[in-house]
Design a protein around this nucleic acid. Structure first.
Lengths: 212, 212, 212, 212
DNA sequence: GGCTAATCGAGACGGTACGTCCGGTCTTGCC
DNA sequence: GGCAAGACCGGACGTACCGTCTCGATTAGCC
């Protein structure tokens, strides 16, 4: 869930009304707000996260938040994007690793995802966003478009290249395979039915690769 | 997510303070509250669902809700349990169907789950509960214990019986297989990355059964 | 404000509905309720005095209060009557002292009243009742009838006897004189515009007696 | 109880917490609240007067009341001050009338006070405030300082000027005389022991003036 | 380098819902 | 049938935030 390139410009647009001028925007305030949101969601959780608290923590007027974001979820989405964007991308490349060994590559990536899910700094905002998205379709659309879809595409790309070299069957359903990897992982993470471990990631990869 | 037998007794306990006497509880009010909660969550969604509205709709004092449930999520959990408990259980049996054809049986069940997920009457409260559970570990625990775990157990039972008759390998990881079935399904449902269809359910079953 | 003979029977009647049978009334509960009311009004004041707290303190069901009294003010009125009734009446006689020296007699009584007003045990419930009566005419009627009117009558009686022996003019307005004694005293007490002292009582008596 | 000049500034301070900025206060809301409070106290009485009803009637958020006043009694005090401040002051002069005839002047003023006490527009809020003040010393202090004390001072001033021209004895206790005028009047008004009439006011003045 | 206009921090405002408290009624089981 | 206990409906409490709205005071970008 990292690795997604961070495009600065469009950001999450404000709800309605007359558009403010992004050129005059205070980057200082923008950063302070995102930082405050991330810090607070970790401290008090998403449900008790309030716009007022974010504004106070950031030393910012409430209007400055409402001017640029339509909801606290949108703030948190941008904050998460910033977080993901700041994360060190493996080695500068933007795709999944491709050593030629499909299973090994997938395990490496899935293990990293497991680690992210287990790291409170990522867990709190991601969990909050996912939960909010489940209930708020509009947010979910942005969330999917900016974080999920690119991530899924990376997996499909890696699988496609594997199929191209004959490691997967001609008719392999790449999308299905991707979801068979990320679905169970996300299921365990979100619903806490069982602890997330590297072993689980490995087993998952082995099972899915065996499918083809 | 239906089929779960509805045990009346423990219910979702109230938050704190001195316990009220369950023997004197008004069943009329209890039902009215659960009904109102289900109706309202379908009408306005979870975020705009309020305890006040539930109380008003149920013709009940707010205190009567607070006396017996610690949060609106807990009310909704009980309401969902009642919903699931009231649902017609296939044919009186409590387990998954077992015709001897594992893939066919699983497809039948997963298609039914897809239909449930696509039915607003089930979608709204389940989605709300899942989202709330993601952020509220205590609620998640009850949610898992009462709805998820029993459901998972049913799948494992069916797979176990298949393994017993040699349709699955000796060392097949039943838990993993179960999660490979429900994980991707839940992933699509919750995050709305793609529409849920019977075809998807079938493909999922085929892929997972092929694993073994 | 003591000295008023305490008639046990009529008490402050309950509001409406079917009359309960006073013969079966628990005197134990009745006393406990009045005691609790007096104690609580001293502790928390009239505004924060609640029927529930009285019931809890008295170890009594709420209904037992509602059965016999129409409001917390009525409870307090009975409690005050009990208090006044229990107070030692100067020397068994029921009227004001009559030594032949009008001014001296009045000073003695007014000084006693000042002391009562300054004694928290009397001050709290009396103040509460007076305040409640100012706003609740029905209560005020009972309050006046049971406490105030008898008290005023005692003064008028004493003044009448003084007039009979020529210590006051033929046409002296006894009611006016009584109010000129009690009015300023009550004014100071209730509104706390100045401290209540024996000196004030004496000055008042001298001024009023000089009138005639 | 009118005639008191209305000083705008100090007003009745809010309870605790961090002080709001009075410069940014909405005068529109302030007036609407005071008007609504006066109207409602006349309609439903003090006991059934609620902050919620005031807010609703004034078209104002509850917080706007709680921000500036600590209690409904405090609101009513300010409302009464506004009422008194708006009242036409005899003829622009701020003191009691002084025609040279002390008894006549006092009768005129006391008759006016009787009329005020008998006018529901003044009776309801004054009665409510007096009752509340009897039980709430802090409120009573403000009430006394802003309404009672100035009123008492006016009487004493008039009496002082009478004493200066020899209409009262050298050693006349002006404070005592003032209280002998207002005490019995207030006593009758508040406790409703007898109807308030001009005749009573006149008799009172005659008796008190005869004292000296 | 001044002018102008929009953003900014601050926070009051009209609202809505919160979770609590209590009023007054009703029900249950004991005495 | 009175009683202790306490659940019930209702409704006000005082608080917390929502999202909108003014207020000066910066702070750009354009002349």
């Amino acid at each position: 869930m990292s690795r997604t390139p961070h495009t600065k410009t469009p950001e999450t647009a404000p709800a309605g009304g007359k558009a403010p001028d992004p050129a005059r925007r205070s980057d200082r305030s923008r950063r302070a707000i995102l930082d405050a949101a991330l810090a607070l969601v970790g401290e008090v959780g998403y449900n008790k996260l309030t716009i007022e608290a974010i504004a106070a923590r950031a030393g910012v007027g409430k209007q400055t938040i409402y001017r640029w974001w339509p909801s606290k979820a949108a703030v948190l989405l941008d904050a998460s994007l910033a977080l993901a964007g700041d994360a060190p991308t493996a080695d500068g490349r933007t795709g999944l690793p491709d050593t030629g060994d499909l299973a090994a590559d997938l395990k490496q990536v899935l293990r990293a995802t497991v680690d992210e899910f287990n790291d409170p700094a990522y867990d709190a905002p991601l969990r909050a966003l996912t939960a909010a998205g489940a209930t708020d379709p509009e947010l979910a659309a942005r969330f999917t478009e900016r974080l999920l879809a690119p991530q899924l595409a990376l997996y499909e790309d890696r699988l496609r290249s594997a199929r191209a070299v004959g490691q997967l069957a001609e008719g392999a359903d790449l999308r299905l395979m991707t979801e068979m990897l990320l679905g169970p992982l996300t299921y365990r993470w979100l619903l806490r039915t069982a602890p997330l471990s590297h072993a689980f990631a490995d087993a998952l990869v082995d099972a899915v690769v065996a499918t083809a």
